[in-house]
Each structure stands twice: as structure tokens, then as C-alpha cells.
Amino acid sequence: MSLIYLLVPFGSPLFDSLSLRQSEPFQVITWLTGNLSHSDGNHLFWNLAALLLLGFFIEQESRWLMLCALLVGFVAIDIWFFIQTRFQQYVGLSGALNTILVCALYTLRKPGHWLRGNEILWLVLLLAFAKNGYEYATHSALFSNTRWPTTPSFHIVGMLAGCGLVCLWWRLRFGKEN
């Protein structure tokens, strides 16, 4: 992501060709590069910081879960981009990071009871949904300031994809025991 940011600056023709664009839905490479490109340094910094922290927690349990979270997050965001009608162009990892956030919270859980001992994790999940809901309702970012308008519907879709992945992961991992 850092190399893309340094080598392909915002506003350049190559930057546009790496971003998801409503006008060109069948550019398969942009389904990856759109999630890895960033509009400005602030955007890149916060996405990298979150990826490093959340990825660390997930990889403590399973690298496969981390790879699945990235894949599911990218696919969910890409599909949502071509369904929604508000944005004509998209770059950034924050939508998929919300998938990764849900998976990280899952890996931090205390086993045994779905609620008891995990209240803080549920609070973080609830606050993340509330933040994304607020941003969706107001069309403004609560904590960050980037070159592009905030995309809270992408964040919500990422969180929902993460919830689906965690349910599937749980079922595959523990389903035979129950």
C-alpha cells in the first residue's frame, strides 16, 4: 500500500486506473488495487496502523482467518461499490478493515460464554456500528479527515461481512462439536 501511494500519486492518470470506477466495472485488477490505493497520507497512515494492530491480533489465532478476512472484505466492498449509487470512484482499505475489526474482536474473545467476560469486545463492536451509523446519517467523518468524502456505507458493509465470516468460521471450527 505504501509503494502504491508513493509511486502512484493521487490525481495522476495511473491513480485513476487503479481505483474502482463505476464507469469500468469489469477491470478485475482494480477490484484489488482499489482497496490498496489511498487518496492521501492521512488515509494511508490510519489504514496501515489499523491493519497492523488488528492483523496482529488475528494472526495470533490464525493466518488463514486473516487471509479470509482480507478476501471477504475486499469482495464485499467491491460488490457493494457496484451496487451503491452515491460514489463513482473508490479507494482505500477502510471498508475491508471493518471486516478485519470484527474478526479481531472474535479472536480476542474469552472462550466459554458468548457474553460473560467479553463485554468490552461487545462494547467496541457496538461503538463501531454506532460510529458508522452516525457517519452514514450525517455524511461526515467522525475521527478522520481525508481528501475524499467518508464512505460509511462501505464501513457498515465491511462489518456485516465480518459478522458473516465470523459466524461461518465459528461453524466450521466448532460446528461438529455442538
Rank of each mutant, 00 (worst) to 15 (best):
G158Q: 03
E59D: 08
L115E: 07
W122N: 07
M159E: 09
D78R: 01
T107A: 11
G73R: 00
T146G: 05
T107N: 04
A130M: 13
N145P: 03
L105M: 01
G162H: 01
F129R: 00
L142G: 04
F56A: 10
A141N: 11
T138M: 10
W114L: 13
F154A: 04
L53R: 04
L105H: 02
Q89C: 06
F143C: 08
L53Y: 12
H155A: 11
L93D: 00
L168K: 02
T150L: 02
G112H: 04
V166L: 09
G73C: 02
W80F: 15
G162M: 05
L93F: 08
T85W: 01
E59T: 14
T99D: 07
L97S: 05
A69V: 01
V75P: 04
N145R: 10
L121P: 07
A130N: 07
I83F: 10
W148T: 11
L93M: 10
P152A: 07
S144T: 13
I120S: 12
L127D: 11
W64F: 12
F56D: 10
W148G: 05
H139W: 12
G55N: 06
N118M: 07
W122T: 09
H113S: 14
E135S: 03
A76S: 10
F129P: 07
R86W: 08
F81K: 01
L101S: 01
N132G: 14
A104V: 03
W114N: 09
W114I: 15
N145C: 06
D78S: 14
L108N: 10
S140N: 13
G162E: 06
P149G: 15
F57A: 06
V157I: 14
F129K: 01
D78E: 08
W114C: 10
F129C: 12
W64G: 13
K131N: 13
A69W: 00
C68E: 13
L123A: 15
A137K: 05
T146W: 05
S62N: 05
A137I: 09
L51D: 08
I77E: 04
C103E: 07
W169R: 04
Y90H: 10
E119L: 08
E119V: 10
T99G: 01
L127E: 10
E61W: 03
N98F: 08
R63S: 12
H155I: 03
L142I: 12
G92V: 02
Y136W: 14
C163P: 07
V72E: 00
A137E: 09
L54E: 08
C167S: 15
C68W: 13
G117M: 06
